[in-house]
């Protein structure tokens, strides 16, 4: 499935702090703070400065974080749309 392409800001635009399994993330361009659950921080990491669609994001996650599942693409697409609503990724 070739869905929309998404891109996240480069890594130096965010400051992330782990909080017992969750992540507090400060987004420098907007000055906003977000509390994220996995796999959202990992998605931002693999999308930083490099656009991809949901399937490609799933593949990158599988390669880097050993996160593989049958319908990973659909789950990732849902997370991407949440991250877009939060202003942390945009269509690239």
């Amino acid at each position: 499935m070739a869905g929309p392409l998404y891109i996240a800001d480069p890594a130096d635009c965010v400051r992330a702090v782990p909080l017992e399994g969750l992540t507090a993330l400060y987004h420098r361009p907007s000055g906003t703070t977000h509390i994220l659950a996995p796999p959202a921080p990992q998605i931002l990491e693999v999308l930083a400065g490099s656009p991809a669609d949901a399937d490609e994001v799933a593949e990158r996650l599988a390669r880097r974080f050993d996160l593989a599942s049958e319908d990973a693409g659909a789950a990732i697409a849902a997370r991407l749309s949440e991250l877009e609503a939060a202003g942390l990724v945009r269509r690239g």
């Binding site: 909080l19 017992e20 969750l22 507090a24």
Partner: peptide, 10 residues
């Protein structure tokens, strides 16, 4: 939990 503490303190 730490995340709840963080949010409550903000």
């Amino acid at each position: 939990g730490a995340a709840e503490v963080f949010v409550r303190l903000t």
